[in-house]
Amino acid sequence: MIPSLPRPLWLRASTAVFLVAFLVFLFLPLVIVAVFAFNDANYPAPPWHGFTLDWFLGNDSAGRVGLFRDTQLLASIWTSFVVACWVTVLAVVVGTANAFLMERADFPGKGALSMLMLVPLVIPGVILGISILAFASRVADFASDVFGLELDFLRPGLPLVVLGQFSYIVAIATLTISARLKRFDRTLEDAALNLGATRPAVLRTITLPYLRPALVGSAAIAFLMSFENFNTTLMLVGADSPLTIMMYGRMREGATPVLNAVSLFLMVASALLALTLMRRNDRKDA
């Protein structure tokens, strides 16, 4: 049970075995993906045929298109990046506004609104996707029938993907930023105001710097969640596929190890993001 109580040997041994098995279970799929990015074969499967960088650098003449020559994949990474940037900016800005609204303002119906803000988190992503798709189409049809306006951004495509992802990611940003704003000592603001600072100056020099870790943290989470989102995106996507949709399509067909290469790239990128965040936090604590 706990360290201060005697634990029989069999219990300690089985705990250790269980933990090792658990870690293997956790990391085996990732290790396998990474290893087969370097296998010198046309299909990501055993046996091992030797080491190659073809799946990163290869071009058409070698008969193998590597990640850095695969224009389709590169374009989809770029698409995901652009979408994620939009979602991040929107989610952090609106999330901050929501945090101030919930922590600082008082108005009738506040309780109901704060409940409503949590609802997007319990709606399955697929349903968020179809509801936004149907509603946007209705609005676009209406505009086209009544005003003769063609609102193309309401048809399946990247703007709709951004809105769909934003609709639930902003709820997470709101929670994160509200939690930190709640712990803020308001006497600091009062002190600054008493000393003659204007309200915008107080916001800029005191409140926002205090919120900074939450802002950075929620931005990172928003970016990551947007980049990895599949369910909502699948329903709203148009001609330009973000990376997850592109990878899904290729995985169904049985793709070459170029998918392993792009996966490895994603692993390295998210590891770097995680490390940067952790280092920031360590510095803040020190």
């Binding site: 990732l30 993906v33 087969f36 990551l224 990878m247 995985m251 392993n260 692993m267």
Partner: peptide, 30 residues
């Protein structure tokens, strides 16, 4: 932290790993 690491990686990537492990021509059957 170690438990959290795999979840920084996209679900697509993790599923790709399971497919390479489990399919008929994959690692575990071999």
């Amino acid at each position: 932290v170690v438990c959290l690491i795999p979840f920084w990686v996209s679900e697509t990537v993790r599923t790709l790993g399971w497919m390479i492990l489990l399919r008929e021509s994959g690692v575990l059957p071999a």
